[in-house]
Amino acid sequence: MEGAVQGELHPHKGTIAQDIEHYNHKYLIVDDTLDSIKPIDWAIFVPRGIRSYYAKPYYVRGVLRNVVIVCSKKTSMFKDKLFDSYDEMLKPFMDIAWTWRRRDFGKM
C-alpha cells in the first residue's frame, strides 16, 4: 500500500482484527471504502486511494496473531472470489510476518 509503513500503528478503536474476532468471520471484505462507516477505513484506506479490500485472519494455537489485507484501488474487487485460492499466495506473507514478530518480540 503506497505510503504505508510496516507495523504502522493507528489510534482508532474497532480494528479489522477486532471485527473479525467479534463477528467470528473467516474473512472480511469491504467492497467500497467510500461507503464504509468504519473509522479505520477512513483513516487508513481512503486517504491512500484504496477502494476495496479482503482481510484474512491467521491464528496460532487458536489465537488471532495476524491479519493479511489484500487491497485494490478498484471497488468490489473481492466480491464472489474463491477465497481459499488466496491461502497459497498468502503463506509467504505469513512466514515473513512470523519472522518479523519473533524479531520484534526478542527486543522486549
Rank of each mutant, 00 (worst) to 15 (best):
A17E: 14
E8W: 03
A55L: 15
Y54E: 01
V46D: 12
R61T: 03
H12A: 11
V68G: 01
S72H: 08
F105P: 04
S52R: 15
R101N: 02
H25D: 05
Y86C: 08
K91I: 02
Q6G: 04
K81G: 00
T33G: 00
F78M: 10
D41F: 04
A97V: 05
F105T: 10
D19F: 06
L28Q: 07
F93Q: 08
F83L: 13
E2I: 02
Y27R: 04
L64C: 09
H25W: 07
I96T: 07
H22S: 08
C71E: 04
D19A: 08
L34F: 06
R51Y: 10
M89T: 06
L90H: 01
H22L: 14
T15M: 10
N66R: 05
K107M: 05
F45P: 05
R51F: 07
I40Q: 09
D19Q: 15
S36Q: 10
Y54N: 02
Q6Y: 13
I29K: 13
S36D: 09
M94S: 01
R61M: 04
K13D: 03
P47W: 15
F83D: 14
I40R: 11
M1C: 02
Y54Q: 03
P92L: 11
H22V: 14
A97W: 05
H10Q: 09
R51I: 07
H12Q: 11
D31L: 06
D31Y: 08
K74D: 09
V60F: 14
Y59H: 04
H12P: 09
H12K: 14
I96H: 09
P57G: 10
D84F: 06
L9Q: 15
Y54D: 01
W98P: 00
D87T: 07
H25E: 11
M77V: 11
V60N: 13
F83A: 10
P92G: 05
V5M: 12
K107W: 07
G49C: 13
D32S: 07
I20Q: 02
Y58M: 06
I20N: 01
V70C: 04
P47G: 14
V63S: 12
D32N: 09
K73W: 03
D41Q: 12
A43R: 15
I16N: 03
I29P: 02
W100D: 14
S76I: 06
S52D: 10
L64H: 07
T75R: 13
G7W: 10
M77P: 08
K26M: 01
Q6R: 14
P92E: 07
F105E: 11
D19H: 14
P57A: 12
G106L: 09
P47K: 13
K26V: 00
T15H: 11
D35S: 10
